[in-house]
Design a protein around this nucleic acid. Structure first.
Length: 742
DNA sequence: AGGCAGTACTG
DNA sequence: CAGTAC
DNA sequence: GCCT
């Protein structure tokens, strides 16, 4: 009766705010990109395999007391608990964002070798002088702007990415700020395409007469695939917007009508979008009118083989089962800013997805690669300390760790070199920096002054720290087990642990043996291509078992990272399958949702893709996978008769074992699952908190629960088709995956 | 001073 | 139930 | 470690 956890959250609103993508990154992003090796692989944001798309994820537990259907309306019906929150009339994200320049600028000495001198010590950067120069230029520019330079934009907010910084007015309600940040972030996205193409241009004169022949692109919302060069994208984008069209930044945007790509294997889930070559746009421009798309299918890019894994499989028409419905007739598409007028003359311009049935996974878009870290002198020690707090000390120290990491992350994202803590307080990098005091702030001060952290040095001197740090790096070994192994068995290194495991196998659990076996391999990052290839095998298996079931890669892959720590795959059978099993989904060899995963896994094991299990359930699996031997991956046995002449073995250099998770969700749950498993962790936490504070909802990987006093009730009054619906329900504006890295 | 999400799987 | 991971 |  006492566990009466009147758990009415009191979460840190601050953390939340801080964890929402701030408005500044995009600009940095693009600038930074220029600094990098142009040949670097562009980031690809996310991959939606198969068809279906809508989904999100969340993992909040399903509270025991789920009472179905006793809700009405979307209104949380608060009970009279003492814990009732003010439920402020949190006006949702509004357009209060003010623009102002980057707050601070640094004063740095650049040493000849590219180090930066701070507080007497010189730090070597992992990047070169040019980057530092760039940072300095940026600082200068920021300074100029701050001093009253060019008002970035009159009244508007979403004008381009440039210099749109939030007003960090700390007196405002944190929730309010959160909403605003979210709003700003998404706003960037929405019109962003055009804006980013040409920041100085006026909005695609939505005002002009729709019928204006000069504006023949008005029914078009284009999305440029990442492989289209920046310049071409810029030029064509300008032309398109000049002629009434719009350019979207997010393939996910439902308004996208045309995906301009050069890849024949480009694939994405928007059923309404048409895949065309950029040449199509050029042809239209030349002709002064819309040209038939068919004349410009995505061009082949010279002789490049699609990822072996994909082409290798007689890939079934996985492409679209679920979405063969009529195309969203242009104007419905959304409550959006860009109104897509399907225009009469454009007969069939917008039509159902008829795209490739097979192909590589590869819809990518320009990178969201992590910007260069200009402040390793601060972030490295903080992260090191955080790691010790979390992996060695454990327990509630994890919260300290979380905070240290949060600060390190925020500092890492800054586009100037920090030389004084005050620079972090002006607009506070994290809410804690708005406070008068803070231990982390003291640590940074110490770092800047001495280049060291006494606390860190002290911890590192303890003999067991290093050992526990290393041992807990083994999957399945946490702080407790690591400590115990060190204390009781004198094990300090993974090598020693292996020796022990060989002598006394019973010392470790089965999972820990697996973790130990693949210790080195699991530490390696997984390139996007490989994630796609692995997911491709999953897709093949799924298609064989349950046609129409979508396969979506979530996780950091979906956030556009160039490499991932693991592969996170979500399966979602079609509505038809849910209703009628193999009746509803012809070709399915299984009948229930619970049967899908085991059948898929069986296939993957047979093919050698899945090598080990870590945990197995009917709707959730965690384990180990790797690309099969190249001999097994033959050239595509083309369906059109062009016979693959046998093994065009694409050699995979190492074929490492990778951590992979696969989970099954119903279409109703998918939006939540996607959201949850796309993360990031901070982003999720912020959304959870927002949901709770603002709406009295608890958000998890399968839906919402309405929190009433001590129990919860599943929310089932609303239909959530995709992530956008979840954002909307929460009164937040949509944030695309790439902006969720926080 | 208490809370920080809450669950699923393993042994 | 503790430990671990998500 | 920080928020309520």
């Amino acid at each position: 009766m006492d566990k009466n956890k009147s758990r009415r959250p009191k979460r840190d609103a601050q953390e939340l705010c801080a964890s929402i993508p701030s408005a500044s990154p995009p600009r940095r992003r693009s600038r930074r990109r220029d600094l990098r090796d142009p040949s670097a692989t562009p980031d690809r944001p996310f991959q939606q395999l198969g068809t279906q798309a809508t989904a999100n994820t969340l993992v909040l537990g399903l509270p025991a007391s789920l009472r179905a259907g006793d809700l009405e309306g979307g209104q949380p019906v608060p009970t009279q608990t003492q814990t009732q929150l003010p439920k402020p009339s949190l006006a949702l994200p509004t357009q209060l964002i003010e623009q102002h320049a980057t707050s601070s600028f640094a004063d740095v000495d650049v040493e000849s070798e590219g180090g930066v001198k701070v507080g007497g010590d010189t730090y070597d950067f992992e990047h070169d002088e040019e980057e530092v120069d760039e940072a300095l230029r940026r600082n200068e520019a920021a300074a100029a702007r701050a001093l009253g330079g060019e008002p970035r934009n009159s009244g508007g907010i979403e004008r381009g990415d440039e210099g749109c910084v939030l007003n960090h007015e700390s007196s405002r309600s944190p929730y309010r700020r959160l909403a605003e940040m979210v709003a700003a972030a998404s706003r960037r996205d929405v019109d962003g395409g055009a804006a980013s193409v040409n920041p100085d241009r006026d909005p695609p004169a939505a005002a002009a007469s729709p019928g204006d022949p000069k504006r023949f692109f008005s029914p078009v919302v284009a999305y440029f695939a990442p492989e289209v060069s920046k310049t071409r994208r810029g030029i064509l984008g300008d032309r398109i917007t000049e002629r009434g069209g719009a350019v979207a930044r997010d393939v996910n945007d439902p308004r996208v009508t045309h995906v301009l790509t050069t890849s024949t294997t480009y694939r994405h889930w928007n059923p309404a979008a048409r895949l065309v070559s950029p040449d199509w746009a050029q042809a239209c421009i030349r002709a002064g009118e819309l040209r038939p798309e068919d004349e410009h299918p995505p061009a082949l890019t010279g002789g490049v083989n699609p990822p072996a894994s994909l082409s290798s499989s007689p890939l079934p028409p996985v492409a679209s089962p679920m979405r063969l419905g009529p195309p969203p007739s242009s104007q419905d598409a959304s409550q959006g800013h860009v109104v897509v007028d399907s225009g009469s003359g454009a007969d069939g311009l917008v039509r159902p997805w008829l795209g490739k049935k097979r192909g590589a996974f590869a819809c990518q878009r320009p990178s969201t690669a992590a910007p260069v870290n200009l402040n390793p002198h601060i972030t490295r020690p903080l992260e090191e300390l955080a790691a010790i707090y979390e992996d060695v000390l454990g327990g509630t120290n994890a919260y300290k760790a979380r905070h240290h990491k949060q600060v390190a992350g925020a500092v890492e994202r800054l586009d100037f070199v920090v030389t004084d803590v005050e620079q972090l307080c002006d607009p506070p990098v994290t809410p804690a920096f708005a406070q008068k005091t803070s231990t982390v702030r003291d640590k940074i001060r110490e770092l800047l002054a001495t280049g060291k952290l006494a606390k860190l040095e002290e911890l590192k001197r303890k003999p067991d720290v290093e050992a526990v740090l290393e041992l807990s790096g083994v999957w399945g070994i946490g702080t407790e087990t690591a400590r115990k192994l060190h204390r009781e068995d004198g094990v300090s290194t993974v090598a020693q642990l292996r020796a022990l495991a060989a002598r006394q196998p019973g010392k470790l659990s089965a999972n820990q043996h697996v973790g130990l076996r693949f210790y080195e391999e699991f530490k390696e990052r997984i390139p996007r291509d490989e994630v796609e290839a692995l997911a491709g095998h999953v897709e093949d298996a799924v298609a064989a078992v349950c046609p129409g079931c979508s396969v979506t890669v979530a996780g950091s892959y979906r956030r556009g990272k160039t490499s991932c720590g693991d592969v996170d795959v979500l399966l979602c059978p079609s509505e038809e399958f849910i209703r009628g099993g193999s009746q509803g989904a012809p070709g399915a060899t299984v009948d229930t949702v619970e049967d899908i995963l085991p059948a898929v896994l069986a296939r993957l094991r047979t093919r050698g893709v899945v090598t080990d299990d870590l945990s197995t359930g009917t709707v959730s699996w965690m384990g180990v996978a790797r690309l099969p031997d190249s001999r097994e991956r033959l050239a595509p046995t083309t369906t059109d008769g062009a016979e693959g002449d046998g093994a065009v073995a694409v050699v995979t250099p190492k074929r490492l074992h990778r951590r992979m998770d696969i989970k099954t969700y119903t279409p109703d749950e998918m939006p939540f699952a996607l959201l949850y498993f796309t993360g990031s962790g901070y982003f999720n936490r912020s959304m959870r908190t927002w949901a709770d504070k603002a709406k009295g909802l608890s958000l998890h990987d399968r839906g919402f629960n309405l929190v009433r006093g001590n129990d919860m009730t599943a929310v089932r009054d609303a239909k959530f088709r995709d992530e956008r619906d979840v954002f909307e329900y929460l009164g937040l504006e949509y944030v695309p995956p790439e902006d969720r890295s926080v």
